[in-house]
């Protein structure tokens, strides 16, 4: 059992949770993820690490409430427990002194961007962060992003700010202006990571994405998480989740993520009907 020591609603349907998990907190590195199983009947739900504190023995996640498992998790309160928490899983993000880097993030991806930016800074990089959202209310942790990065750009899809648009548009613009960029990191939904990769492709700037295929065990045992990168099949849970966005077969990724939508939909509707009071 792993206790929830903090819960906070950050934006519409986006929740931050902090768990007591000393073993994981001591081993975590940027780019890794956890697998949460809420209860006896629960599925294994992968979530990226959005922070950790080895002293306190806690780990943080930020998740978007989407279907059964995320709703179940969202219905828990501070002090409640989840049944299982395994991690840290996946290969840590490769970090070194690249020079000038961009971190693009949005939605739940703002979570894992935080520890990433921290360690990129520790390695001596100049970090420009671009955070996207449909409107201001979808942006959270803006202060933290600002204080960690050398420069923060907030781009809003509804145009209600000085830099309207989305992260991919920002990156096209930024690169066309001739700014030096040695590497780009992207955390967000598959669509956002795809369009950001497309934006940087013509400029040949290596773009690292953190893929979110369906997973079951997260230890390389089942192959559910297979993705195609550079024409080769890789297991995202042990070979990734970080891959070169210019080499990812995005169509295959999104198709495979839709494999079980019918079942997921049924499961969610039943859960909502049984738990309308929560």
């Amino acid at each position: 059992m792993y206790r929830i020591c903090e819960k906070e609603v950050l934006a519409p349907n986006i929740i931050h949770m902090c768990f007591e998990a000393p073993r994981i907190a001591g081993a975590a590195r940027p780019g890794q993820f956890l697998i949460v199983r809420v209860d006896e009947r629960g599925e294994r739900l992968p979530l990226s690490l959005a922070g950790w504190d080895p002293e306190k023995g806690t780990v943080d996640v930020v998740f978007y409430v989407l279907g059964t498992s995320t709703m179940k998790l969202a219905s828990l309160k501070e002090g409640d427990c989840v049944l299982n928490l395994a991690g840290p899983l996946g290969e840590p993000t490769e970090i070194s002194h690249f020079g000038d880097v961009i971190c693009a993030c949005g939605c739940f991806g703002i979570g894992p961007a935080i520890p990433l930016i921290k360690s990129l800074k520790d390695a001596g990089n100049r970090v420009v962060t671009v955070v996207e959202g449909r409107s201001r209310s979808f942006i959270f942790w803006e202060d933290r992003l600002r204080s960690l990065s050398d420069k923060l750009h907030v781009v809003l899809g509804d145009g209600s700010c000085s830099e309207p648009g989305w992260a991919n548009e920002f990156i096209s613009r930024y690169l066309s202006e001739g700014n030096r960029v040695d590497r780009i990191f992207v955390h967000g939904c598959p669509f956002m990571m795809m369009v950001v990769s497309e934006a940087s492709r013509p400029f040949g700037v290596k773009t690292v994405v953190s893929l979110t295929p369906l997973m079951v065990d997260g230890t390389g045992m089942c192959g559910a998480c297979r993705v195609e990168v550079g024409g080769e099949t890789r297991f995202a849970c042990v070979d990734g989740p970080d891959f070169d966005g210019h080499l990812v077969n995005w169509r295959m990724l999104t198709n495979r993520m839709k494999q079980l939508v019918g079942e997921e939909d049924l499961s969610q509707r039943l859960w909502e009907r049984r738990n309308w009071h929560r």
Binding site: R44, S69, V216, G223
Partner: peptide
């Protein structure tokens, strides 16, 4: 599926009792 995924969904995750259990299977 790999046999491992198929059988893991069914045995470990109890997908044969879906939707009483949360893990789905085709």
């Amino acid at each position: 599926y790999s046999a491992n995924e198929y059988l893991t969904r069914i045995n470990l995750m109890k997908a044969y009792m879906f939707p009483d259990f949360d893990t789905p299977i085709n």
